[in-house]
Amino acid sequence: MACFIVPAAEAVIVSVASKLTASNEKEIETVNVELDGENVEAVKKVPFSRKLKWLSNLLWGGSGLLAFEHVWHGEVTPWFPFLTAANDSADLLSMFQEMSTVGVTMAAIVTAVWGVFLAVSSSAEKKASNGLLSAEKGR
């Protein structure tokens, strides 16, 4: 009915958080990566604002395409009140129920998958810096 509104609302919050974080990040940290045992290349660490952007992209993209599905099924209209469920109080109740169950689950699944991305990315960055430390100790 209107489950996409929950991830869309999260997308708005995450986008704002991403912009605020980006304005507070002063310098991008670099990590030196040893490529072939001799050559060391400086690689920029992914800033947290960019990681937040991944989440906002997932949420915006998903909720945008889901909004289209709701238009397809006639649940969203281009005229006021935009949601057909808003015309009837019984439908409105089931809409809120759907938002609190399906909508919240959608947002939670997307956020959980982003959390896995984050863990993988952090682990790769840690491995890169540890590799450099051991290479420096070996010299």
């Binding site: 997932l58 909720s63 395409l65 399906v102 699944i109």
Partner: peptide, 21 residues
């Protein structure tokens, strides 16, 4: 192309939740 990946994966995850329900 990353933008396409984000869009389709985002929608797939959301429809997955819908399918579970």
């Amino acid at each position: 192309v990353g933008m396409l990946c984000f869009m389709y994966w985002g929608a797939s995850l959301m429809w997955l939740a819908d399918a579970v329900f």
